[in-house]
């Protein structure tokens, strides 16, 4: 698979179809990867793709020049299913021109969640690691562990229905197509059944952990505003303290800003240093939109943004008499 990927990328660079390729390369620590920006053919062999390729690299495609340093005419990007869905959104929202991007899809089997792995090792440092088919082998100073992959995959990968890029120019390897998952919203449905008190207690508990570092916003492919509402001083929309009320308001507003746009790539969850349950609210909004508008973000490049279109026969049951 990886050889095919490298050959295709080399071809693209050789034929000058792209100016730069964005992909992943091996990180400096075991089980880590880091974004790779490849412009020369001889660097192509640095590219990798495996269960450690966490980052949603599509954030580099937005107009924010701080991220890539300059603008490129033609960008090639290697994507998992969720990443490709982010590109679909960028195209719908006119942040990119689809014809300027060469999308290279790779078959994704899920991505490892570092936090889950560290729980298994009791936070001990991993010195050596190996991933084979269904297991991860970890070696440290005084431990030697073999863990089934499915125990340490990201939560969003466990309920992922679209592991392959729904839109792509090149696909490497065999697509898995749509995966049949029935309990995609299980966490939300369980949560909805709880009483108002229980829900409030949980939300309060979770969001009081937030240190307001905004890492979730920074990694989010849907968060590309030039100036985020949390950074504005005039008017100041929300309090800037890590007090729980301020934090809840921040997360709720962010939830609504990414409503109908979140592709559940799980980047926010992985980036969160305080291990918040950020997914429950995003999934709730996703479920709500699925039920009301039968819409799933990032699947169809010709669709209108769900929150910016109106249809006469939409349900209005939330409006009182």
């Amino acid at each position: 698979m990886i050889q095919n990927l490298r050959t295709e990328v080399k071809k693209l660079l050789k034929d000058k179809k792209v100016d730069i390729i964005i992909g992943w390369e091996k990180g400096s620590l075991p089980l880590s990867s880091t974004p790779a920006f490849i412009q020369k053919e001889e660097d192509v062999d640095r590219l990798i793709f495996d269960e450690t390729c966490r980052n949603n690299l599509t954030t580099y495609l937005t107009k924010d020049k701080r991220k890539l340093g300059k603008t490129y005419d033609k960008i090639g990007i290697i994507v998992k299913g969720c990443d490709a869905r982010s590109i679909v959104l960028y195209s719908i929202e006119q942040q990119i021109k689809r014809e300027n991007i060469v999308i290279i899809g790779v078959p994704c089997n899920g991505i490892l969640e570092k936090k889950k792995i560290l729980q298994k090792t009791d936070g001990k440092e991993i010195l050596k690691s190996k991933i084979d088919g269904k297991n991860v082998h970890l070696k440290g100073r005084d431990f030697d562990l073999t863990i089934p992959l499915k125990d340490v995959l990201c939560d969003s990968c466990l309920t992922c229905k679209y592991p392959d890029a729904p839109v792509h120019d090149i696909f490497i390897g065999k697509p898995r197509k749509e995966v049949d998952i029935k309990d995609e919203f299980k966490n939300v449905i369980d949560f909805e059944k709880k009483s108002s008190e229980e829900r409030w207690e949980y939300i309060k508990e979770e969001y009081s952990k937030c240190i307001r570092c905004y890492a979730c916003r920074n990694v989010c492919p849907a968060c590309y505003c030039n100036e985020c509402f949390v950074d504005q001083n005039d008017p100041q929309w929300i309090g800037k303290t890590p007090e729980v009320t301020d934090s809840i308001i921040f997360h709720l507003i962010r939830n609504l800003h990414v409503a109908g746009r979140c592709v559940d790539c799980g980047a926010c969850v992985s980036a969160c240093p305080a291990d918040l349950d950020l997914r429950i609210m995003n999934k709730k909004v996703e479920k709500e939109i699925k039920e009301r508008f039968d819409y799933t973000a990032g699947l169809d490049i010709n669709e209108k943004p769900v929150m910016a279109s109106y249809c006469e026969n939409e349900k209005q049951d939330f409006i009182m008499g």
Binding site: F191, E192, S196, E197, E198, R199, W200, E201, I203, I248, L252, M281, K284, F318, I319, M320, G321
Partner: peptide, 26 residues
């Protein structure tokens, strides 16, 4: 969802001409 009482947040459409309806709903 987060445990705010549903009575606290309510939506309605009221035209500028519907004074009585406005008063009743408020």
């Amino acid at each position: 969802m987060i445990g705010i009482e549903p009575e606290r947040v309510q939506f309605s459409w009221i035209s500028a001409g519907e004074g009585e309806r406005f008063a009743n709903i408020i």
